[in-house]
Amino acid sequence: MSSAANSAEIEIQTEDNGTFQNIIRHIMSFKDNPISILLIRHPPVRTSIEASNQRQVPLHSGAKAMLVCQKNTDQFTLVILPAHLSCDTKKIASVLSIPSSKLRMANEEEVRKITGCIPGAVPPFGALFPQSVKTLIDTKMSQSTSHPPPLTFNPHVELFSVNDPEWPNDLANATLPEHAHQDRTDCINFNIGLRTISCSIPFDDYLRVLGEQNYFICDISK
């Protein structure tokens, strides 16, 4: 096995599925009006391009989650934008009412501490992290939706099951919510706490999971 393969295997082993399970428990709590999701398992991905290729969905439908920090403070914010765009630090700083010089990207140690995930696995749910943070969602995200991943998968991709080892033990008898319908085009796609599991969810359902009081929709991309 190559050294690169060894490195990838080590990274997978060091992932913590706690954040994934916390999000799943929250999604499953919507019993009266269930959340529509599609979960798939794929080889580990870190970049947005790798992820979109494995999911077989357009790059723009990826919800890229980035953790930023106000310098010399412990104030973190999660920013979400379409995967084909870049964050605009001046716009983000303006929304946070701070000078752009006071804003920086979180380092890997901070990402693990706040989100419970390794870089590349961070999901767009700041309120559901081990250390809850506010989520800023770019205005273009609602316009960057697409169809969910096709159920005719790539050779190394498969549908996630409640029998998979990452699924919470306390939900062993639960049934996954109905898959996102293949004919709908309002879904966003993202890694859901692990580099090997992706979620496709209608944008409005995503906002319901996040909770109205936990996000702010604004222009933060370029």
Rank of each mutant, 00 (worst) to 15 (best):
A5K: 02
S7Q: 09
E11L: 14
I12P: 00
T14H: 13
G18R: 08
I23A: 08
I24N: 01
R25K: 15
R25L: 14
H26V: 12
I27F: 03
F30N: 02
K31Y: 05
K31P: 01
L39K: 02
R46Y: 12
T47M: 05
V57W: 01
H60A: 11
S61P: 02
K64I: 07
A65I: 01
V68W: 05
D74M: 12
V79W: 00
I80L: 14
I80S: 06
L85Q: 15
D88Y: 05
D88H: 02
I92G: 04
S100M: 12
R104N: 08
R104I: 10
E108M: 08
E110Q: 14
I114A: 05
T115P: 01
T115N: 03
V122W: 02
V122Q: 03
S132W: 05
S144P: 08
S146L: 06
H147G: 06
H147E: 11
H147M: 11
H147K: 13
T152E: 14
F153N: 06
P155C: 02
H156N: 14
L159D: 02
S161F: 09
P165V: 00
L171D: 03
P177F: 13
E178G: 08
T185L: 10
D186S: 09
I188L: 10
L194Y: 06
I201M: 14
D204Q: 11
V209L: 11
Y215D: 10
